[in-house]
Amino acid sequence: MKKILIVDDEEYIRELVAATLSGSPYELLMAKDGEEALEIARKERPDLILLDIEMPKKDGYEVCRALKGDPETSDITIIILTAHAQKEDIRKGYKAGADEYFIKPFSPTALLRKVEEALG
């Protein structure tokens, strides 16, 4: 079963994403800040990370760069899921190594499709 790590400091969003993916055969992991996200990612080696940007301790860009820069974790698919909707932010996300960039607010159906697509 594929592992998906949901990273977001907002409890409601974690809950929303979890609810979105709950009907599918994925193991869901949760992290509420950047550091926790890195820790879990390295330990659990998820197949996909849904990564928020604006978080305490370490922001999404840093987490993304850290994981993509590390050969151990660089193959993890990262989808940034953020309210930062400006072009500048998106470019920054891709530059940090993200595979996809998904803007809040989002449609749960669309997100599910995106996740399925990413995991093949």
Partner: peptide
Amino acid sequence: VSHELRTPLTSLIGFTELLLEK
């Protein structure tokens, strides 16, 4: 502001969709 508005909106849109769809 746009960022700050998006966050509650995400919850609103996301959960309402879940309620409607599931």
